[in-house]
């Protein structure tokens, strides 16, 4: 019943949006490529390229004029037989690696890509060493048996815990 109500509400919203986004608004939809396979490649590229104006969005998500132009360029080049790397190269030549939402792996970005893993490994190594030393210490001279007084205190504490 509830699901039904939500479905109806969703349909109403969709209808309203459909009407609101009718002709006459400034939004101009992109012309997709005729070949669905090429169009799919172009869209995949759109999602990984940064909109240089909005910077936090991909050109697929942005309606900035520059993002529209960049989408058109990607389609043109894909449609013209360029490989995905050709298209990336075309844009990085002009905008630098910044235009790629995923920074490429190269010496300047090693710290970025491998830094977290390196910190994790270092942390794990330190933790491992500490635990091992603590264990070695517990097994060795540090491990004296409890004195009678200590045993008595421990028992009281443990008894307290039960109540």
């Amino acid at each position: 019943m509830r699901a039904m109500r939500w479905a109806l509400l969703g349909a109403a919203c969709a209808l309203w949006l459909g009407l609101a986004a009718g002709p006459g608004l400034a939004f101009t939809p992109d012309e997709p490529l005729g070949d669905p396979a090429l169009e799919a490649r172009a869209r995949a590229l759109h999602a990984e390229l940064r909109c240089m104006v909005c910077q936090g969005q991909s050109i697929a998500d942005s309606n900035a004029p520059l993002a529209q132009d960049m989408r058109a360029i990607v389609r043109e080049r894909i449609g013209g037989g360029a490989s995905d790397d050709d298209v990336r190269g075309f844009l990085t030549d002009r905008y630098g690696d910044y235009v790629l939402l995923d920074p490429p792996v190269k010496p300047e970005t090693y710290a970025l890509w491998f830094g977290p893993a390196a910190v994790f490994v270092a942390g794990a190594a330190i933790a491992f060493a500490l635990v091992r030393r603590a264990r070695a210490g517990a097994r060795g001279a540090g491990a004296e048996p409890l004195s009678a007084e200590e045993r008595r205190r421990l028992d009281t504490l443990l008894d307290d815990d039960d109540t």
Partner: peptide, 13 residues
């Protein structure tokens, strides 16, 4: 007019 030269110059704003 179409902004393509701007893109060739790496213009974004």
């Amino acid at each position: 007019l179409d902004g393509r030269t701007g893109i060739d110059w790496g213009v974004y704003g």
